[in-house]
Design a protein around this nucleic acid. Sequence first.
DNA 1: GTCTATAAATGGATAGAC
DNA 2: GTCTATCCATTTATAGAC
Lengths: 212, 212
Amino acid sequence: MLAMPSPDWRAKRRAAALGDIVEMAWELAREHGLAGLSLRDLARRLGMAAPSLYSYFDSKHALYDALFADGYRAMLEMDPPAEGDDVRTTLRNVARFYMQFALDDPVRYQLLSQRTIPGFEPSPEAYALAQEAYDWTAAPLRAVVDVTQGDLDLISAVITGLVSQQLANDPGGTRWVRLLDDAVDLLVHRLEQRKTHPASPRGRRTRKKRNP
Amino acid sequence: MLAMPSPDWRAKRRAAALGDIVEMAWELAREHGLAGLSLRDLARRLGMAAPSLYSYFDSKHALYDALFADGYRAMLEMDPPAEGDDVRTTLRNVARFYMQFALDDPVRYQLLSQRTIPGFEPSPEAYALAQEAYDWTAAPLRAVVDVTQGDLDLISAVITGLVSQQLANDPGGTRWVRLLDDAVDLLVHRLEQRKTHPASPRGRRTRKKRNP
DNA sequence: GTCTATAAATGGATAGAC
DNA sequence: GTCTATCCATTTATAGAC
């Protein structure tokens, strides 16, 4: 008797193949650079013909999009940064978590956080994952202190900057990594100062109004 | 009478041609992305045959190297950030200068400050220019306050982070640009704190020694 | 969904005449 | 220094048989 393959089985099979492709794509990207990734190499390493990839991805950009989404999914599957007893500890955990994630895989960081592939923009679905990961990472911090969007933007910029400088100017070293705790102290100071003067959070500088 | 072209004239001619090539290369890179730059396009836009470029550059990477050097030379030819009356004003000037330079030409920023072209590393000569530009930018700050290398590294990281986030997540906008003054305030606080407690600049945290 | 064959183009780079 | 001609590899992508 010939059993019909269940749709469920088909879907699983396809998902598994898709996962293999994405995984191998990361491997090649790490070897030859993100821009150096080629569908030919990818297919060869998978033991399949290059055109076969097109039954999984409509274009190379679609593959990049899958990688982009996969990168953020990987983040969301990790143990989240621990909520500490105070703001400083919590922010330190969040910052270390993000820095670790970025330095663990520079090519992944390049795709997720820099605009480096000409013409590539993540799809709305993939970008939604990025947003989710962003909120998820910041959640422990939100739990222990009131933060504005500006606070979070500044925090993300500082961590991003440390990562960026570390990768560009001292790859494999620790020149900027070891500044992380100092950077956290600076940011905590800002948050504490906010908490102390909730009524005038930006009151350190005064601005003239144009038409008083 | 046939006049011999003076070596001087030849050198000038060559330098001018070289400058034209570099300028056009920037233009194309801005159009098609840094990685999307091709020697064929470049030659066509210059009205010359592609192989002719090889009398100016030994390889495509050599062209990238020339662009890298040119980018930093452009910085060094600008009006330097003004030294202000106090640390805050001076740091603000330096930070704004750098941010302006980066946002003015994202592709240039990408080449100068990120490792994005597979296999490309600036030559020692080009990298020396980068160092020079770095020192030149920081000079006004050094003139008004004692800064350690760690201070400068943290400062550069913070500014770089703002630029990086601005370009990646809000290109053309001001979401991170408008955080610059706040970031400067944070950094100034660190520098002031240092000045107040010169004996124990990192004494806020205590560490246990392994073998006391 | 996989393959072969092939398109249609681009890539960087070299040889050698002028 | 500039050109033509060419190499040879590579690219993404499509057509169509199985």
